[in-house]
Amino acid sequence: MIHTGEKPFLCSECKKTFAHLSTLKSHQRMHKGEKPFTCTECNKTFTQLPHLKSHQMTHTGEKPFICSECKKRFANLSNLKCHQRIHKREKPFKCTECNKRFTQLSHLKSHQLIHKGVKEFTCPECHKKFTLLKHLKSHQLIHTGEKPFTCLECHKSFAHLSTLKSHQLIHKDEKPFTCSTCKKRFTRLSTLKNHQRSHGGVEPFISTACNKRPSLKVTLLSKVE
C-alpha cells in the first residue's frame, strides 16, 4: 500500500485515513486519551512507543541526529527536520492576519497571540504584562540584576543572549549590517540606523542650548549637561 498510496483504514473520530491497521489503532489512542507507554525515569506517559523512546533521550543526553549544514545535534529526527528549515529558508506556517511566515507551528501560535491582544503573563514586581512567558522571564532579569550570559573572550556579562551575540561580533570583527547608500559596514543594526541619518538628513534631536541639530541623541544629552 506504500507504493499504491492506498489508505483503506479510516478513523471514525476525525476521518483521517491510514495505510495500516496498526497505525490507525495507534492514532485512535489520542482520541481515547490512552497513554500506555511510561518513562521509567519521570513517569511521563505517551500514546506511542517511538514518542517514549524519543523522550528518553532527554534523560540520557543522546543526540544522534546531526545537521549536515552546521553540525548541530538533536535528540529527535522531527527537531532536526524543523531546524533544517532555517538553512533552507522554508517558512511553511503563515499568519492569516499579517501574512508573516514562520518555520515552526509553535512560533506561529505564539505570534498570533499578539493579534488577539492576549497577555496572560504578569510580572509580580511591576505588574507589566507579556504575551509570551519567555518575554516575561527576560524582563524579570531587570529586577533581579542577573546577567547569566558571559562572553568567553572578555568575560563581560549580559542579561540577554541576544545582547551577548551582538557583543561577540566585536571580537569576531564581523559587520553584517551594510549601508545601502555608501556600503559602509557595521557591527550593530542600531549603529547602522544612526549612520543612515547622515545620508537622509534625519536629525530628530534638537539642542535647546545652541539650537543645533546633532545627529545622535547622546550628543544632545552631552550638550544639555
Rank of each mutant, 00 (worst) to 15 (best):
M1Q: 11
M1I: 11
H3F: 11
T4D: 09
E6T: 03
F9S: 09
L10R: 09
C11H: 13
K15W: 11
K16E: 09
H20T: 03
L21W: 00
L21S: 02
K25N: 09
Q28V: 13
M30E: 13
H31Q: 03
H31G: 08
G33M: 12
G33P: 03
T38P: 00
E41G: 06
C42P: 11
N43M: 14
N43Q: 15
K44S: 04
K44A: 07
T45I: 05
T47G: 15
T47V: 12
Q48W: 05
L49R: 09
M57K: 12
T58L: 15
H59S: 04
G61M: 15
C67N: 11
R73Y: 09
A75M: 08
N76M: 10
S78T: 11
L80M: 11
C82D: 07
Q84T: 03
R89T: 10
E90Q: 06
K91A: 03
P92K: 12
P92H: 12
E97C: 02
K100V: 08
Q104P: 00
L108K: 01
L108G: 03
H111W: 14
I114S: 03
I114W: 01
K116H: 02
V118M: 08
K119G: 03
P124T: 06
K129C: 11
T131C: 08
L132W: 05
L133Q: 09
L136M: 04
L141R: 15
L141N: 06
E146F: 06
T150D: 10
C151Y: 04
C151I: 08
C151K: 02
L152Y: 00
L152S: 15
L152I: 14
L161F: 09
L164S: 01
L164Q: 04
S166G: 12
Q168Y: 12
H171K: 03
E174K: 13
K175N: 08
K175R: 04
P176A: 06
F177N: 05
S180E: 12
T181I: 13
C182T: 03
K183Q: 14
F186E: 01
T187N: 05
H195F: 01
H195R: 05
R197S: 15
H199G: 07
H199C: 14
G200D: 11
V202H: 13
F205P: 10
I206H: 03
T208F: 10
T208N: 13
C210R: 08
R213C: 10
P214Y: 00
T219D: 14
L221T: 05
V224M: 08
E225L: 15
